[in-house]
Design a protein around this nucleic acid. Structure first.
Lengths: 218, 218
DNA sequence: TCTATGCTGTCAACAGTGTTGTCACAGGCG
DNA sequence: CGCCTGTGACAACACTGTTGACAGCATAGA
């Protein structure tokens, strides 16, 4: 992959993050320190000279994703709803492109510049919608948690289901239920198995945007 | 805890699940097969005689939680919104009471009777709200994913933050941002750090219920 | 009642994970 | 030129889920 044993490779935070992104783009289910080390052509434990723990590294990678997603939003500031939708879709795209990062991202708060950019973008959008104070931060938090948790869940499904399909079912296997005990499940069984990941994710985004609109109208 | 070394303990699915619940109620961050084995007073690997994998065991435990939550809903069927709120709160309560189960629950679909009961309850509620067909299953799925992902996230935070507090902050540490680059973050910094886990979770539930109401009115 | 067979607990071990301490080398500074 | 800090290499630790071989128990059949 990189240098042979002869010379010692020189690492730094940026190159480690780059390697992590490359490795995640491969589609592996999870990033391990050892795998990342060999991918870098260096000893795995050398990574700990630049990151305090694997959690810290994963946070940095997740922040990178957040930053990429925020940077991809190019709609005019006036179209606040469009910007929110675009940010959400971009986040989902980043998470599914680098599933190992999105899947292992449990903390959902990175304290990095990428996250700050995404937060400011969302706050600005809801501010333009007319929200202020508690209403503002609450609707931001609602959208943020929905987007991060939703995208992480979809990434996790993609990670171990090993598929690059644009759309995948929300429930993996059809749920069989006794029509006498669970009539509505049985009745809507086919509709339920036709539900798609992404469609549901976007519906959630729209619902939150609509809630913000009516909250602002009051 | 149980028998001393002399006699072999007899295991079955029910007793293993019970032990898992007890162990999770302790507040441990995660359940390990070895720990669960010693808690049962048996060899850890004996568990594999009754569950194909740890994932299968965790699924069974999660299904138990779902069932408990669904069983705690006792409002009349007409009050569909109240029932949905109650189910959501009960799920959150179960997840935070057994954090190790809620935290390690990534798949969010257990295929067990507990899950089926919860699904039927939600479908029935949205049906009574007047939703049918695609609108019905979509709003169900929206609420289900929000409740499960949200409760899992809160449980995860509780698990490694080691606190039993009723309410905990949504973001653990205040986010410091340059007011020139991120004016809205800086301006709303205190409001952001005052956001609470549970409050946000319930707001999300209400937003989805409201969306269902307006969808049904059309 | 006695035997045979399959279920199930025990043990050792494997492959993998994150992480730490020790050592040695490289490069920049005085 | 020499020191000293930073950083990579190596070995090892503690932990994870999981499997295969073995042995004993309990039950079904004669």
């Amino acid at each position: 992959m990189a240098n042979k044993a002869s010379t010692r490779v020189r690492l730094d935070r940026a190159s480690i993050i780059d390697a992590g992104m490359e490795l995640a783009e491969t589609g592996v289910a999870a990033i391990s320190v050892r795998e990342l080390g060999t991918h870098l052509g260096a000893d795995p434990t050398a990574i700990y000279r630049h990151f305090a723990s694997k959690d810290a590294l994963m946070s940095a990678l997740l922040d990178e994703l957040n930053g990429q997603a925020a940077a991809r939003v190019d709609l005019p500031a006036e179209d606040w709803a469009g910007r929110l939708r675009m940010l959400s879709e971009a986040t989902l795209a980043s998470f599914t492109r680098y599933p190992a990062i999105g899947a292992e991202a449990t903390s959902l708060t990175t304290h990095g510049p990428g996250e700050l950019a995404a937060i400011e973008l969302m706050l600005d959008a809801f501010h333009r919608a007319g929200l202020r104070g508690q209403e503002l931060v609450r609707h931001y938090a609602l959208l943020a948690s929905h987007v991060l948790a939703g995208a992480a869940g979809i990434a996790r499904a993609r990670a171990d289901r090993r598929t690059d399909a644009e759309d995948s079912p929300w429930i993996d296997s059809p749920l069989l239920a006794d029509p006498r005990q669970f009539p509505l499940i049985a009745e809507n069984s086919t509709l339920l198995s036709e539900l798609q990941d992404r469609e549901l994710f976007l519906l959630g985004v729209d619902v939150i945007i609509e809630a913000a609109r009516t909250a602002a109208a009051r």
